[in-house]
Amino acid sequence: MLSAQGVGVARGGRVLLAGVDIAVPPGETVALIGPNGAGKSTLLHVLSGALSPDRGAVTLDDAPLADWHRTALARRRAVLPQAPALGFALTVREVVALGRSPHAGMSTPAADARIIDAALRQAGVAHLAGRAYPGLSGGERQRVQIARVLAQIVSAPGRGEAGGRYLLLDEPTNNLDIGHQQRIVTLARRLARRGGGVLAVLHDPNLAAACADRVVVLAGGTVITAGAPAAVLDAALMREVFGVRVRVYVDADSGRPFVRPV
């Protein structure tokens, strides 16, 4: 389990996070929602280990992140950035292959090649494999990055380490059309079904409600509420946190809520 206990972060006298508890258990997809400036990205950075919190602790399988060897940690959790630019023109395949770096010495070129191929297919970018990354559209870049993080957390056959794999996704559906949004959501849920944990920062409460097992609502650097989408997303919360008046509908098939501003 990847979890944070009592995490606090302050920068330049401004409190970004205060007393945040959050857990991403294996097998669950957790959506982190909240208004702009709520501290969602900061919390993602803290959970990834890129940012050390001023207070509290982040643990993976009960061991503090600081005690993990950086490459061992990298084999267990990957972070999807918001479609970064690239210093120089690598090909799509080369970008995805970077995901295999933490497996150096623990995998073979043939196993790496198979894992990279699979990741390219899953993210729907196999046809772009030979293209130069800088020439891609924003949505294509996003999918290539998804392929890269997928390739990062797969162990070579026979070299698998115990414990769940964790994906931290920062706005994974930005720049994506509805078809590709759905594809990413499906990928996340499939990973969760296989015992992985997914934390996704999402802007769209409806997407969160549709895909997450649990929704965590962050505002002003603290967790307002957390729970199953149907229990969390109601009109009062939407007015309080986002300042919008909404009507809440419930999907008859899934029982999941969706909201519409009125």
């Binding site: 990298a74 970064p84 995901g99 770096s101 933490p102």
Partner: peptide, 12 residues
């Protein structure tokens, strides 16, 4: 080439 944070997340 991906960025410093990304390199960090890759275990470097």
């Amino acid at each position: 080439l991906l960025g410093e944070t990304e390199a960090l997340h890759l275990g470097f």
